[in-house]
Design a protein around this nucleic acid. Structure first.
Lengths: 327, 327
DNA sequence: GGTTTTGATGATACCGGTATCATGATTCGG
DNA sequence: CCGAATCATGATACCGGTATCATCAAAACC
């Protein structure tokens, strides 16, 4: 920058102004400085800028896994909005561990991020404390948690799960199986189990532990689950797969075994991944606002950072049941 | 940090040493400083550190799309290795546009990243120049490009495509259709087309334009392609879907139409996404080292940054044909 | 016309660390 | 036992920007 200033015959302050608030510099000088910037191939140093001005244009995002394609639309949504506003995104995955999340929060705070997006809604006490002390805005996106750190943008996993269960009941199913990811340490899986139980109670169906299963993520899990529940002691007439690609694995298993879907067993899924609608039969599922969550999360974060809003924010983006041929 | 130094009764230099090179500080003082850090809840400012030391611990990654789950394993691999070494990852997507990539490169250089990972192997002249002037190491990962900017970690899209085409020929197929993503501006799609053509020539099959198709990504594209090629003027007896999830969409379409696979048409895919192996029938495809590419890219980048290596590096991680029931 | 206001630019002091060299104490070799 | 080497620590000058206030000329006001 010093170099640019010399070339243009002005002070570094003027160069800085041209870059951050061009209106404050006379047109003639601005031209000269621009030319000098071009000539020098000058790339400003944001580290120095952020250090001096005490605010950065970097947002930190922590997801449980980068490999899981479910987060991809959300990440894309965040990235889109940030980019349009000249912000950068720093990403890391905590592998579902709270301790790792805490370490990442520390690392991001050390980088002086201007805000954080956390997919998890469970955090260590230390992480909460650090974030509070740092005084930066935070958005949680995993589920509409009742006690957010700061702001939330999501949908209610509880309500979505409840709605789908009631939907299956309305279709006439009476022994509705439920498969989720392990709920230990996963607020989302927990909320979905709760929604399922609440729906059963509302429908007057007795809870049946042998119809509930927790499985690790992955297609083979779904395959295993559909067999266990459809051939178990209490054969399910429909199964609600409330996690990941479990339903896809289940339908493939049915195809392999020649089981009619929904004749032998109805199948419902939780996420609107594209493939569900293309399968034979297409699978009943929920439309979740994955990309929209990312965009809105980024937007309200920027609103706060740029002083366009103040208090806590809670955005419920809802969900929608997509009834298809599999139920 | 000044606060920590006061609490511990030492200079800031000593605090800095405790954090970056504890061996240089006596055990007793180190204890005192650690305690002070703990008590003050001190989180170091990496911006200041990087500015002063002139090197950062942030790596920039630019992919064509964050939404496409094909990049997920690579990103995860990079993230894994970086994290283990105390580095952070900055991610952005350029939507396949060279100009956007250039803008992102500028933004990352402004953040003074220590290195770059670029998935694309095409770059604007300005981007190449900036990177060269910045003097930071770069790894390209999209394909084993013949003229890399600096380092490459990938597999050969040309060879992989050629191998699969020859494989289909060996299985007895003679009218092998080929579907790829639009090759304009995409070196990977281009290389795959080249490999297909080379294989045809080797096998002594005449090139047949009506057996080649370029389709946008997505399941419906695959569905459309399989119909057009299997029912076209020159009906394909096998189709090699060299991109994305095209093959999945194609198989679903066959299921819907009741076409026997491979009886009516053989189907081969390019990527080893999990679902291909679970479908009915499971789809013949290539095993590509997606995650390994990410890990190795990060490793050789860190090797260079930390001075463990110098010259250009070219890592061919190869590929493997997975023959399944669909061909 | 003199004074106040406005606008453009510059001088300077940081932001919060680290590199570098200086300092004083301790250890070591012969 | 003395000078050199080693070790632990500190003082200081940056890294490359921006905030803040000062300066001075031109415009606006009464």
């Amino acid at each position: 920058m010093r170099d640019v200033a010399l070339r243009a015959g002005v002070s570094t302050m003027t160069v800085s102004r041209v870059l951050s608030d061009p209106g404050k510099v006379s047109a003639e000088v601005r031209q000269r400085v621009m030319a000098a910037i071009e000539a020098a191939g000058y790339v400003p140093n944001r580290l120095a800028g952020s250090l001096s001005s005490r605010h950065s244009r970097v947002i930190g995002l922590i997801v449980p896994s980068l490999e899981n394609s479910l987060f991809a639309p959300t990440i894309q949504g965040i990235s889109e909005v940030l980019r349009r506003n000249g912000y950068q995104l720093m990403v890391a995955d905590c592998g579902g561990s709270d301790a790792e999340e805490e370490a990442l929060v520390t690392a991001f705070l050390a980088q002086r991020v201007a805000g954080l997006v956390l997919h998890n809604t469970r955090h260590t006490a230390a992480a909460r404390a650090m974030i509070r002390r740092a005084g930066i805005p935070v958005v949680e996106t995993g589920t509409l948690t009742p006690k957010p750190l700061d702001m939330v943008v999501s949908y209610s996993n509880h309500e979505a799960s409840r709605a789908m269960t009631l939907h299956l009941h309305r279709l006439g199913y009476r022994r509705i199986g439920f498969v989720s990811l392990p709920a230990a340490g996963n607020n989302r899986a927990l909320a979905r189990q709760g929604g399922y139980r609440a729906a059963l109670a509302e429908a007057g169906l007795p809870p049946e532990p042998r119809l509930m299963l927790e499985m690790p993520p992955g297609l083979p899990s779904g395959a295993e689950a559909v067999v266990r529940l459809a051939e178990g002691p209490v054969p399910a007439d429909a199964i609600f797969f409330a996690g990941d690609v479990l339903a896809v694995g289940a339908l493939f298993e049915c195809q392999r075994r020649g089981w009619a879907v929904p004749g032998r067993v109805g199948i419902a899924a939780f996420d609107n991944i594209e493939i569900l609608g293309q399968m034979v039969p297409p699978i009943t599922t929920l439309r979740l606002p994955r990309a929209e969550i990312g965009r809105r999360a980024a937007e309200i974060l920027l609103d706060r950072i740029q002083g366009r809003s103040a208090g806590p924010v809670r955005v419920d983006l809802g969900f929608e049941i997509i009834q298809r041929a599999s139920t």
